[in-house]
Design a binder for these strands. Structure first.
Lengths: 199, 199
DNA sequence: TGCTGATGCGAGCGATCGCTCGCTTTCAAG
DNA sequence: CTTGAAAGCGAGCGATCGCTCGCATCAGCA
C-alpha cells in the first residue's frame, strides 16, 4: 500500500478499486487484468489506482488474499466446530464446508486456481493449506485412536492435499459422477479408510 | 501448423523452435514467453516462427502437449505392466512411475502446472487424467474383489485426482516430510484403505 | 548451370501495457 | 473565508508485445 487513505472517500476509493479488480478478473480473465481496465471498471483514473497500490501485482495480491482468507475462514470454522466429532463425521462436515466455500464464488475460483501465475496465488493458498493442516495435525495427535498412521503431520498433509484437490476439481469440472452427495461420501471413505489403514 | 515443412532443414527448424520454446518457458517463465524471445533463443527470426505456427498459442500447445504426453506414456506403461498385481502393489508402482515422470523435468512441471493459463494446459492434462482413469476403471471393474466401492468409475476418479495432486505437490514443494519412500507408502495406504472401505 | 519454389530474414507496424506527472478539485483545520 | 494538504484526474511516455511483409538466400530438379 503506497499511501494510507485518511479521508472517508479515499477509503471508499480503495474498496472500489479492489472490488473492480475482482470483477475484472472474473469477467475478463487474468491476461486482460490490466490497471487501465480495472480503473475503467471502477470508474476512476489509472492515476488514482497508483496512489494506493505501488504496482499491479499489489492489487492482485489483495484480491487473491481476500478470496483465500474467506475460504480459509469458513473451513477452519467448520473444522473447529466439529473438533469433537468422530473422524468420518468430521471429514464429511469439512468436505461440505469446503465445497460450499469454493462454490460460493466459482468464477473467481476458476481464475485464481487455473489462470493466475501461481507464484503469487500459491502463497495465500499455501497459507490456507497450512492452517487447515495444523488443525488436522492437532486433531490427529490428540486422538491417537482415530488414526493408525505413524505420523499425524504426514497424515494431515496427505488428507488435506487429497481432499483439497478433489473438492476444487469437482467444483470446477462439475462431473456428472460423482454428484455432490456421492462426493462427500467418497471423501469420507477415503479419509477414514486411509486413517484406519494399518501403518 | 501453418505450413508443412518439406525439406530437411525446415523440419529441423520446427524442432529448434519447439525446443527453444521449451527452454524459454523454463528459463524465463510464462509471462516472458514471447515469440520474439523464443525466436532469439532459437537463433532464428520471428518471421520464420510464423511460417510454421499460426500464432503464439499454437507453439505453446505443442510444448505442453509433448510434456503431458510424455508423462502420460510413462504412467500408462507402468499401469499396464502391473495390471496383474494386487491393488496396493500396483498403487505403489504407479505412484513411483508418476513421481519419476514428474521429477524428470521439474522446472517445466513448475511452469506448466503453476504458471500457465490452465485453459490451454488443462486440456492436455485432462487427457492424461482420462487415460489413466480409464485404465483404473477397467482394472476395478475386472476385479470386483479388489474394491468395495459401489462405482468403479467414481472410485477411479477419486483415486486418480487424489494421487495426482499428492505427487505434483510433493515434487514441486519437496517437503521434508514425507520423504519419497514415505510418500509412496502413504499413497498405497490411501488407495488400499479407500478401496477396502465399506461402501 | 540456370531456374523456381521453398525457406529464412528482420525492420517495424499497430496495439496494449504498466505507470507517471502536472494539473484541478475537494476536504478540513484555523 | 482562507489555505495547505489530500485526493483525484487523464493524457501520454516508453517499453513490449504479437505478428506482417518485402526481400534475400538456398535447395533440388531439369
Amino acid at each position: 500500500m503506497r499511501k494510507e487513505p485518511r479521508q472517508a472517500r479515499s477509503r471508499a476509493m480503495v474498496e472500489r478499486i479492489v472490488e473492480a479488480g475482482r470483477r475484472t478478473l472474473v469477467a475478463d480473465g487474468y491476461d486482460r487484468f490490466s490497471t487501465n481496465r480495472v480503473a475503467q471498471t471502477a470508474g476512476i483514473s489509472p492515476g488514482s489506482l497508483y496512489q494506493y497500490f505501488p504496482d499491479k501485482t499489489a492489487l492482485l495480491d489483495v484480491v487473491v488474499e481476500r478470496y483465500w482468507d474467506d475460504v480459509s475462514d469458513r473451513v477452519a470454522a467448520s473444522l473447529a466446530d466439529r473438533i469433537s466429532d468422530s473422524g468420518p463425521a468430521m471429514a464429511r462436515a469439512v468436505a461440505e464446508s469446503l465445497l460450499d466455500a469454493l462454490d460460493a464464488d466459482r468464477a473467481l475460483l476458476r481464475v485464481v486456481a487455473e489462470e493466475l501465475p501461481a507464484r503469487r496465488s500459491r502463497q495465500r493458498r499455501a497459507a490456507l493449506e497450512r492452517r487447515v493442516r495444523e488443525l488436522a495435525t492437532a486433531y490427529l495427535a490428540a486422538r491417537p485412536d482415530a488414526s493408525r498412521r505413524p505420523s499425524p503431520a504426514v497424515a494431515a498433509w496427505i488428507v488435506v492435499l487429497a481432499v483439497e484437490n478433489l473438492a476444487t476439481r469437482w467444483v470446477l469440472d462439475r462431473p456428472e459422477r460423482p454428484d455432490r452427495e456421492e462426493l462427500v461420501e467418497e471423501i469420507a471413505a477415503l479419509v477414514s479408510g486411509y486413517l484406519t489403514s494399518p501403518g
